[in-house]
Design a protein around this nucleic acid. Structure first.
Length: 283
DNA sequence: AAAAAATTCAACCGCTTATTT
DNA sequence: AAAATAAGCGGTTGAATTTTT
């Protein structure tokens, strides 16, 4: 039997839910004989219990032979990034510049990777790991310090206030020439804290999202041609109403995912080694 | 090792636009 | 010219899968 899962049954005459291989076969056969379109007659002619809408969707998003399978490539990704910055959520428009990719696919990709406020999961994870690490480190340091810290009037050690809006850059501390051992310790401690802060900032900076998207990596014009596809109607896009548009967009190249996915080492090859040079370990 | 949380993505829905009758 | 039907679009859902705890 087939209706195994709760959603996948038929409802109001039409089957819904995931397509089976047999259904696909029927639809493919139909298209071979009759071409694309006239989706409502699929059910009549083939006995498939699917609405025309469902048939069209299945064909367009999955069965179409010119579809490109597999992961979105880095090149494709940057096209998506740029075009989205340019046009916002006009998925189908964007898809026209990515042969073999569907609007649905691009939409999904965007949502899972770049949805507002959500840096790539890799960054999130790295950051979570890092913060955890830092927490532990700090408490450890605190204990350590309490142990050997006698009576020191630490007057202005908290000089860097909490609201750091500046752009911290790693390593610009100059250790003062001659200092007592105790002071040196203190100094070291501060350095460490500062470094941690810096790393924190760095992680964020690593995810640019500053705009400046001039369509560089791909020669794509806003409204221009690309009409070569499907040959039918040429000017089919709706007017670019003032409302939509690029509400925001980050630049094109910050493919951390590439680094992470393609190179095996993940973060070991990216930012972290740099930080590890400072004598800090992660994981 | 198992349970919980997070992610993914195929497919749905409602709405708009285009085409046909 | 208007109503009806079909196609297209973008947002949303939720089962299956993967990752984390």
């Amino acid at each position: 039997m087939e209706g195994q899962f709760g959603w996948g049954r038929e409802e109001g005459g039409w089957r819904k839910g995931p397509w089976t291989a047999q259904e696909d076969k029927l639809l493919v056969e139909y298209v071979r004989q009759h071409g694309e379109g006239r989706w409502n007659s699929v059910a009549k002619l083939t006995g498939l219990k699917r609405s025309g809408k469902s048939c069209r969707l299945r064909w367009v998003n999955y069965l179409r032979p010119d579809l490109k399978r597999g992961k979105i490539t880095p090149q494709e990704e940057s096209v998506i990034l740029e075009l989205h910055a340019l046009w916002g959520n006009r998925w189908s428009t964007i898809a026209r510049s990515l042969p073999g990719r569907t609007d649905n696919e691009i939409k999904n990709y965007w949502r899972t990777h770049f949805k507002k406020g959500k840096p790539s999961k890799n960054i999130e994870r790295a950051r979570a790991r890092f913060l955890k690490q830092r927490r532990e480190m700090q408490s450890q340091l605190l204990l350590q310090q309490q142990g050997q810290d006698d009576q020191h009037e630490h007057q202005q050690q908290k000089k860097h206030a909490a609201d750091h809006d500046g752009e911290a850059i790693v390593g610009e501390e100059a250790p003062s020439p001659a200092v007592s051992p105790a002071a040196a310790q203190q100094q070291q401690h501060e350095d460490l804290q500062m470094l941690q802060q810096d790393m924190d900032d760095l992680l964020f900076q690593f995810c640019p999202m500053a705009a400046s998207c001039t369509s560089s990596s791909c020669g794509l014009l806003p409204r221009a041609a690309s009409a070569s596809e499907e040959g039918s109607s040429s000017g089919d896009h709706h007017q670019l109403d003032g409302g939509g548009g690029a509400t925001w967009g980050w630049g094109s190249l910050w493919n951390l995912d590439d680094v992470v996915d393609d190179v095996d080492g993940g973060w070991d090859t990216g930012l972290f080694p740099l930080l590890q040079d400072q004598g800090l370990a992660f994981y």
